[in-house]
Design a protein around this nucleic acid. Structure first.
Lengths: 171, 171
DNA sequence: GGGGCTTATGTTACGGTGTAACAGACCGTT
DNA sequence: AACGGTCTGTTACACCGTAACATAAGCCCC
């Protein structure tokens, strides 16, 4: 069927869009967050954030490191890991444990929990903030007498566009 | 408060219990599953399964490898990874992506999805099969036009026993 | 029981991911 | 200018995982 243009969470970032706006918004949030709490968004931290936001595909630390070194920064791992740790601690990027990669946080600000949809085909990851899911995670933990601290929810699968592309027209 | 003895998911495995029963049950399930589908539970695969089930704490591949080599098996990583891949493909162990470790599957049989509670204090991990949670994950994916294939749900935190131990009596 | 196929194991070598530890540079304060 | 904190640069290493190839073990068929 030719689905109507109901904008799903993936389509908003997977399709063609003005990505400069994503990037600018992310940098604005970073400025605000850091300014508000006296954290220093130094050149290297800012640059790492820009690189993470170069698209919506999670990027590995060593990929980032490669790009940084091309640009004249050092090439030692701790550099990029420190920047990523800083950004993550301020809720500006997320680490996706299931694929060992980092993605820009679409909310910014306080460190918060989120859920991720990760398409193994196009590589794009989308961040969700599903209250029902968050609530049920908490409820499941409570039921086990468990203090939830850091829930990891990463859903691997295939996004609509990739599913459509893999089945040319109709079977 | 002195909580009553309502057995929560963690208490069942974190407290003192007849762990030989856990181990025996796991091995029985493995025999059944492998027998039913013509898979060979070879000595090394069986031994890896036993080691994973030596307690309820997820174990790293290299820890397993160390123990195997002490027992006269080889000491090359592919050995243990192959056994783990086999066991995981038959739903006998799970890999916890957030901590790069493996834990015995408490259900066995078909490869299935589950959720995990991982206490960062005592190291114990417990497997849940929360239908509501599974349903929510599916619903969240559907809402985004996303085909869910491999959801990863790993909840880090602190179990009741460790929380109680860290606060001696009452504040 | 030998030939040939499939599966499993043993081994080498390497790539990817992440961190400890220390030295030096930068920055604001006094 | 001296100081103390933060940030950066660097070395070295630990841990996690896999590709590729050689050998051995099980299986089936004749």
């Amino acid at each position: 069927m030719a689905s109507s243009a109901s904008a799903d969470a993936f389509a908003q970032v997977a399709g063609p869009h003005d990505h400069d706006r994503c990037l600018d918004a992310a940098l604005d949030r970073a400025e605000q967050v850091c300014g508000a709490r006296g954290a220093r968004l130094t050149p290297i931290r800012r640059r790492v954030l820009e690189l993470v936001w170069s698209d919506h595909k999670p990027v590995g630390a060593y990929d980032l490191l490669g790009r940084l070194s091309e640009e004249g920064w050092g090439s030692a791992p701790p550099m990029v890991y420190r920047a990523l740790t800083f950004l993550e601690s301020h809720g500006l990027v997320h680490r996706l444990a299931s694929i060992n990669a980092f993605v820009g946080c679409s909310q910014g600000g306080e460190s918060h929990s989120a859920q991720f949809l990760i398409c193994h085909d196009c590589g794009i990851a989308v961040e969700l903030h599903d209250h029902r899911l968050a609530h049920d995670l908490k409820a499941a933990a409570d039921a086990a007498g468990f203090q939830l601290e850091a829930p990891v929810v990463e859903i691997a699968g295939r996004c609509r566009a990739c599913a459509a592309a893999s089945v040319p027209e109709s079977p």
